[in-house]
Amino acid sequence: MHALYDLAVGPLAWLAFGVFIIGSVYRLLAMRALALRKDGAFVAYVSWPHAFKSLAHWFTPFGALGWRENPGVTIATFIFHICLFLVPLFLMGHIVLFDTFRGWSWPALPDGAADVLAIVVVVICAYFLWRRLSVPEVRFVTSAQDVLVVSLVGLTFLTGVLAYHRIGDNLVLTTLHILSGEAMLVAIPFTRLSHMLFGVFSRGYIASEFGSVRHAKDW
């Protein structure tokens, strides 16, 4: 198990970050090239002022019609995504790792707060899974990949919380936590999680069409 742990924090960590960063850059550049090659009659209308205005609405809870009409999902989505970035980036345990291996350090969240936020992510993952399986309009379009990616995120945070609270075998849980976190990073450029890369551009594009051609709001 120690060997697996060493593998996970060593070569696999390099691999995961490498695939995530290089994969994401590649996917963005490839998509941009495809857009310029094949979607010229649409790229021509891209208007950044309209895109930013629309994104400001969509990044505001209840700032768009879709958010207002789906209040439960909206609250869950915003809290989930904020925690999803906040906890891994500002967790003392993670910063210590970076400090130890690379000598990088930055301010951390208080441990208690990070713990609560991580538990919130797990609970919201459970909520998303429940929606997937029991809300008819969501279940109708759910595939194995959808369940898998939510489970992967949930598993990463759940194992993190358990390891932090020293529930269960610490080494096994920590190793599992690191492996699932790495799997999540690798999955971002190549699965539905790619909405993290493309979301602002697809919204920005349609906002440009609505703003500069159709003179109507898209939120």
């Binding site: 941009r32 309009e137 969501v138 959808d146 539905r192 697809s202």
Partner: peptide, 30 residues
Amino acid sequence: GARLKTYVESCVRCGMCAKACHYYMSHKDP
């Protein structure tokens, strides 16, 4: 091109669009 590819790949199947459609709102059929 990129529009179709992006839309198909990044749709997270959240179902939020259901309430947008008059067909769904009238039939309530997923």
